[in-house]
Structure formats: C-alpha cells, structure tokens
C-alpha cells in the first residue's frame, strides 16, 4: 500500500526518514513510477519533472547533503550575475584595443583571468575571430558545453537536439533560421566542443560603430553573435 510504511514508521520511537513523500503531501500519484519496468533508480522518484526535482532536493536536504542557501546562491549567480554581458564586455574591449585583441586571440586564459572571467566551464578558453573570409559558429553535439563565465547558462535552442544534430552538417541552413545569410565568399568553421576547451566567437565590429566607446559597443554584442548564430547589431538597431 503506497505510503503505509511512512505512516507506520512515523509512529516509531526512532522515526524513519520519510523524505519527499511527506514533503510533497504524499499524493497517491507520486507512488506509481511511470516507468517501473525500468531499473534505473530515477524511476523511483515522481515522474513529473518539477516534483522529481523537489523530491530529490528534499531527500538531499534532510540528509544535510545540500544546503538550500547554497542552491539559492547558485541560482542567483547564473540568473542575475553571470551572463552574456560578460562576454560582451570582452568583445567591446577587443574591438577598441588592438593589443588586447591580439593577446585575447593568442592566449585567452590569462587575459580573461585578469578580468575575473575565469571559472567553471570556462577553464580553457579559445576566442575565434569572424572575418570577411571566415565565420565561426560553436556547438556541442555530445551534450551542452558552453563558456559559462562569459555567456552564462546556454539558451534552450543551444541544448536542443535540432541544433546539436544539424549545426555541424548544415550550418548555413541553421544560420538562415537565425536570419543570417553569409556570402559565398565566406567559409563557415563550426567548432564542436568535444573537450573541456570552450569557444567564444569574436564577432565582426559592425559598420557605423567607429565613434562608439566600449560601453556603447558592448550594447551591440548579442549572445548569439558570440556563439556565431548571429551578428553584432548595427548602431541604429541597438537603439530600436
């Protein structure tokens, strides 16, 4: 009988841990794993994804294995503090300062470390420059590798089967779905992030941006332009 062991044990002198079954209100549906024929342990958790996460979080918290305050800190970090604005600052600086750009392209790690942009999922950075002859585009066909310290958590499409499957085989068709059409004279180089090296695209500086300072330039740099599925905005577009 679902839930009975929990009810009985809660009466015992040394109460047993009841975990998510109590935390989630012990609704009957939670006790019937959707894939009970599957011997993967995850099938023992509730099938609904939000409840599944909640259940695991509850179990781990009760055992002292995770600290809820630490979870909040991680979420706040990636929701509010680390994101494409970091990469945009780097790109704007590279557009403005030829020495910085040369150092960044030659060996990005020490340059980024100096800016405080080293960290998890950005331990080994390579920056690749778009030119009139070559457009760079980044994918991870095997999972979702992405330069977190510079771009944050990847957008949904980057992690989608369609992008992972197609970016290496038909990058130009994928680019067209982002509204980007490259001239025949421009070759595409797709970087499949198969190791712990993370790639950042240095997009071409847009025309009409010659008089702008770093802060205004950073506003032209989109997340997609640093993945290579977009181009930097032209100044009028940024104001729109």
């Amino acid at each position: 009988m679902p839930g009975s062991s929990c009810d009985v044990q809660s009466e015992a002198a040394a109460p047993m841990f009841c975990g998510w079954t109590q935390a989630l209100g012990a609704g009957q549906s939670f006790f019937m794993p959707h894939d009970h024929h599957d011997d993967h342990p995850h099938a023992l958790l509730p099938p609904d994804p939000a409840l599944r996460v909640k259940a695991l979080e509850t179990i781990l918290t009760e055992k002292g294995l995770i600290d809820p305050a630490a979870l909040e800190e991680i979420i706040d970090t990636y929701q509010n503090r680390i994101g494409p604005q970091n990469g945009a600052r780097v790109v704007a600086r590279a557009w403005s300062d030829p020495d910085f750009k040369a150092a960044l392209l030659a060996d990005a790690d020490p340059v980024l470390a100096e800016l405080g942009l080293y960290g998890r999922q950005g331990e080994h950075m390579v920056v690749v420059e778009n030119t009139a002859q070559q457009h760079n585009m980044v994918v991870c066909t095997l999972c979702s590798c992405y330069p977190w310290p510079l771009l944050g958590i990847p957008p949904g499409w980057y992690k989608s089967d369609a992008y992972r499957a197609r970016a290496v085989r038909e990058p130009r068709k994928v680019l067209a779905e982002f509204g980007v059409t490259l001239p025949e004279s421009c070759a595409v180089r797709v970087w499949d992030s198969t190791a712990e090296v993370r790639y950042l695209v240095l997009p071409a500086r847009p025309e009409g941006s010659e008089s702008l300072g770093e802060e205004e330039l950073a506003a032209l740099v989109t997340r997609d332009s640093m993945i290579g599925t977009g181009l930097a905005k032209v100044p009028g577009e940024a104001l729109a």
Binding site: V139, T141, L142, P155, G156, W157, S160, D161, A162, Y163, R164, A165, R166, V168, R169, V174, E177, F178, D192, D224, T229
Partner: peptide
C-alpha cells in the same frame, strides 16, 4: 547526434 537527420528547425529564443 551530430549530423543526424530529421530533427526539424532550430527555434531561436
């Protein structure tokens, strides 16, 4: 899945 066919269009966000 790199190179796989049949996944349909990418949905930019």
């Amino acid at each position: 899945m790199g190179g796989r066919f049949g996944d349909g269009p990418v949905a930019p966000e």
